[in-house]
C-alpha cells in the first residue's frame, strides 16, 4: 500500500467552531473534526476517493479519519485537520520551552485506511485514555 509524506496543519474551521457549540458528542461535531482535507493529487496517489478513510501517522501517534475535499485551497503535500480529539492523537507535546505544543507543520505519513473505521468520541477515549482503575479520591 502506498504511503506518502505530508505536512499536517491543524486549525480552526468555521464548521468546527459552529458544531462544537452543538455539543462535542453530536454527530455534526464528529463530522466536522474527525476529517482530513487533502489535495486531489495526493488522495489519488494513495488510491482513495474523497469520503474514504485515511490513516495519519506521526512520531507521536496514529489516527484514522475521513478524507474530504479541501474547503479552502490546499497545496500538494499539505493536509488540514481541524482542532479536536482526533488531531490531538497525532500531536506532540514538545513545546521548545514556550509552553506551546506543535499543532502546525507536523510531518506525517498518510496511507489508505479504506477498511478501517473512524473511532467515535467514546471509542477513541476508551482506546486512548481508559483508566486501569479509578484512583480513590
Amino acid at each position: 500500500m502506498k504511503k506518502i509524506q505530508v505536512t499536517l496543519l491543524s486549525g480552526r474551521s468555521l464548521s468546527q467552531g459552529r458544531e462544537k457549540e452543538q455539543g462535542k458528542l453530536s454527530e455534526s461535531y464528529f463530522k466536522s473534526v474527525a476529517c482530513c482535507e487533502i489535495n486531489g493529487e495526493d488522495i489519488k496517489e494513495i488510491g482513495l476517493d474523497y469520503g474514504e478513510n485515511v490513516r495519519i501517522s506521526t512520531k507521536y501517534g496514529t489516527v484514522v479519519v475521513k478524507t474530504t475535499a479541501p474547503k479552502q485551497t490546499l497545496e500538494r503535500g499539505i493536509i488540514f485537520v481541524p482542532y479536536g480529539l482526533w488531531v490531538a492523537q497525532v500531536s506532540g507535546s514538545e513545546t521548545d520551552g514556550t509552553g506551546m505544543p506543535s499543532y502546525k507543520g507536523i510531518s506525517s505519513t498518510l496511507e489508505s485506511a479504506k477498511k478501517e473505521k473512524v473511532l467515535t468520541v467514546d471509542q477513541l477515549i476508551k482506546k486512548s485514555f481508559s483508566r486501569k482503575k479509578s484512583k480513590k479520591l
Binding site: K24, Y60, Y83, G84, A88, S91, G92, S93
Partner: peptide, 19 residues
C-alpha cells in the same frame, strides 16, 4: 475547558491518570 480534546496525546494521557 476541554484539554482532553485539545492537548497532545501524551499530556492528555497524564491528565487521565490523576484525579
Amino acid at each position: 475547558s476541554d484539554p482532553i480534546s485539545n492537548f497532545p496525546y501524551q499530556a492528555a494521557k497524564h491528565l487521565t491518570s490523576i484525579p
